[in-house]
Amino acid sequence: MICYVQVRYDIKLQYPVRIKTPNAKTAKYIISQLGGPDGELAASLRYMNQRYSMKLDKVKGVLTDISTEELAHVEIISAIVYQLTQGLTPEQIKEAGFDTYFVDHTLGVYPQSAAGAPFTAAYFQSKGDPITDLTEDLAAEQKARTTYDNILRLCDDPDVRDPIKFLRQREIVHFQRFGEALRAVQEDLDTKNFYCCNPSYDCGCGRAANRMRKMR
Rank of each mutant, 00 (worst) to 15 (best):
F175S: 08
K192S: 13
A72R: 12
V74T: 05
E91H: 01
D133A: 01
A122I: 01
F166C: 06
P199H: 01
D65H: 14
F194W: 06
V185W: 08
G204M: 00
D137A: 09
I77C: 04
D57G: 09
D159L: 13
D149Y: 04
Q14R: 02
T21A: 09
V81F: 15
H174K: 08
M212W: 06
V7C: 01
N150K: 14
V74N: 06
R183P: 00
L13S: 01
I19Q: 02
V185A: 01
F178R: 02
H105A: 04
T132D: 14
L189I: 01
N198I: 08
I172R: 06
D57H: 11
G87E: 02
Y9C: 04
M1P: 00
A43M: 09
A114N: 09
Y52W: 14
C155M: 10
P130E: 12
K58D: 15
L34G: 09
A121D: 12
V74D: 09
M48D: 13
H174S: 07
A122L: 00
N23F: 05
T132L: 06
S78D: 07
L138E: 08
D137E: 05
G206F: 11
R168H: 13
D188T: 10
A209S: 04
R8I: 11
Q186D: 03
D57W: 10
Q33F: 03
A139F: 12
G61R: 08
R183T: 00
G206D: 15
A144K: 02
H174P: 08
L84K: 07
V103M: 04
Q33A: 03
R213S: 13
L41C: 06
G35L: 11
D162S: 11
P163A: 13
V173D: 15
R161K: 13
V7E: 05
D157S: 06
V17N: 11
